[in-house]
Design a protein around this nucleic acid. Structure first.
Length: 476
RNA sequence: CGGGGUGUAGCGCAGUUGGUAGCGCAUGUGGUUUGGGACCAUAGGGUCGCACGUUCAAGUCGUGUCACCCCGACCA
């Protein structure tokens, strides 16, 4: 019969060796495979289905924010990148360059986009003549390339899929507002779709996007207590407008530069999903983005009527709009249970001769591993259960995270809290020197400036009067 | 680019003082099974990372080279 929990031994211990656990889960659940070029990944159908669900949920929200999808070219003339001084300085070291094409050396090298601000701003400059043309709010789903030194599937790969939204506005107030709006869109998406609670706020100047006036980000806590930057929204001011000559004729008859923003999230979100919810059995995917929400496993399939009943159930769930799969493969039920648990399917239904006889079905939640009997074919009950799972996954993650956020008022407390794998909130004066000091004494960095600080607090590092509360953590 | 490690079947690995290339899992076939990773039988699968050298003989010894992984510096 069973070989015991041999399966568990196949995935590295989540407590002991988290990085290895992460890699094991990704490869064994067939989310991705390594690509032939170092640092690239092949996203397999099961992994891509998660991405498609992420896209669909984000597109709904983008639409509400007035954004339309479009597409810009992969190749950008090298000279474009050089137009914005800070931007080129930030990206040049990790840009891949095409020097030959059509069997000949190119007159001007082409870069493979590391991000599309330059080419999009160049086009926007042509499209905006009057204030009536503004705002321009466009999003594109694309792949980009950044030649990173060390890579890890989903979290940091040389090529990755993302969405990048780019807007231009007539006033800086409107642009700043859009920057915040999109940050909140991401926060809403992360919490309600991915069930990952996030901290949002401004990035320090050291961490901000090359070429931005201000960068805002959301940070999510992974199971090992490290932080992952899960999305960013940049206020670009007139930096790019001036470099790319993005001018428009305003109501008052004056020619003015626009104010732009950009915002993006990437397939890194899938990495966040894995590291925020997984356990020793593998993935746990929240129902909203799960490729398969319900899997039906027939037990004693060979017995008369079992498979037929299971198929009937499957059709019912499908008609009710659920993403459901009937596993008819010739394998023992136990094998299938483990396989689908590893793949993180939120709800599993077992149907066997006994169940059919009693008019019941056995239902198991992946997140809690709790089994419960439902009436055979209770579609509404399962829909409710999926909602409960979605909500409770967020609650559970939030509780786990909040328990690992510590306050610190001096350097010792910061270092100790970081050492014990916590996020650390501390009053901060805003000086670069104090940010660097943390980095010097620990592996932590300033993730986010979360809120204003009360008047009577002093900087936890230097003791001067504090301006802000900053969150320190070790990061991916 | 520094420091460490690994390359042998699809995956994970063993291979002794040089002497016919092995194991587990996976895969194909036949059968018995199926309520938590079943069992029996049987079959297929290899330029031992690559190159050169030493030797009657190299997975094993020597030199070189390439690739990948981990830890640092850089980053969504």
């Amino acid at each position: 019969m069973a070989k015991g929990n041999q399966f568990v031994k196949e995935i590295a211990d989540i407590e002991q060796d988290f990085p290895q656990w992460y890699t094991d889960v990704i490869l064994k659940t067939q989310l991705v495979d390594y690509g032939p070029v170092k640092g690239t990944m092949v996203i397999r159908p099961y992994g891509y289905a998660i991405w498609e669900n992420i896209q669909s949920e984000l597109n709904k929200r983008f639409k509400k924010a007035g954004a339309k999808n479009a597409y810009f070219p992969l190749l950008i003339p090298e000279s474009y990148l050089k137009k914005e001084a800070e931007h080129v300085e930030g990206f040049a070291p990790e840009v891949a360059v095409v020097t030959h094409a059509g069997g000949a050396k190119l007159q001007e090298p082409l870069i493979i986009r590391p991000t599309s601000e330059t080419i999009i701003c160049d086009m926007y400059a042509k499209w905006m003549e009057s204030y009536r043309d503004l705002p321009i709010i466009i999003n594109q789903w694309a792949n980009v390339m950044r030649w990173e030194k060390t890579t890890r599937p989903f979290l940091r790969t040389s090529e990755f899929l993302w969405q990048e939204g780019h807007t231009v506005h007539a006033s800086h107030e409107e642009a700043e507002e859009k920057t915040q709006e999109m940050l909140n869109v991401y926060k809403d998406f992360a919490e309600n779709c991915l069930a990952i609670p996030v901290l949002t706020g401004r990035k320090t100047d050291k961490e901000k996007f090359a070429g931005a006036v201000a960068t805002y980000g959301m940070e999510a806590m992974m199971l090992d207590g490290k932080s992952l930057q899960a999305g960013t929204s940049h206020y670009l001011g007139q930096n790019f407008a001036k470099s790319f000559n993005m001018k428009f004729l305003d109501k008052d008859g004056a020619l003015k530069y626009g104010y732009s923003t950009s915002w993006g999230v990437s397939t890194r979100l899938i990495g966040a999903l894995i590291m925020a919810h997984g356990d020793q059995r593998g993935l746990v995917i929240p129902p909203v983005v799960a490729p398969i929400q319900v899997v039906i496993i027939p037990v004693c399939m060979h017995k008369e009527g079992v498979l037929e009943k299971a198929q009937e159930l499957c059709n019912m769930f499908e008609d009710a709009g659920l993403r459901v799969e009937l596993d008819k493969r010739d394998a023992t039920p136990g094998w299938k249970f483990n396989e689908w648990e590893m793949k993180g399917v939120p709800v599993r239904i077992e149907v066997g001769p006994r169940d059919i006889e009693n008019g019941k079905m056995m239902v198991m939640r992946r997140d809690t591993l709790v089994k419960q009997e439902y009436a055979l074919g209770d579609v509404d009950g399962i829909k409710e259960l999926l909602d409960v799972v979605q909500k409770e996954m967020l609650t559970k993650s939030r509780e786990r995270r909040d328990a690992k956020i510590k306050w610190a008022s001096n350097l010792e407390e910061i270092l100790e809290a970081v050492e014990t794998k916590n996020f650390v909130k501390a009053p901060w004066c805003g000086d670069r020197a104090c940010e660097d000091a943390i980095k010097e004494f620990s592996q932590a960095s300033a993730r986010i400036i979360s809120e204003d600080c009360a008047d009577n607090k002093n900087c936890a590092v230097c003791g001067k009067k504090a301006q802000k509360i900053v969150v320190f953590a070790r990061a991916y």
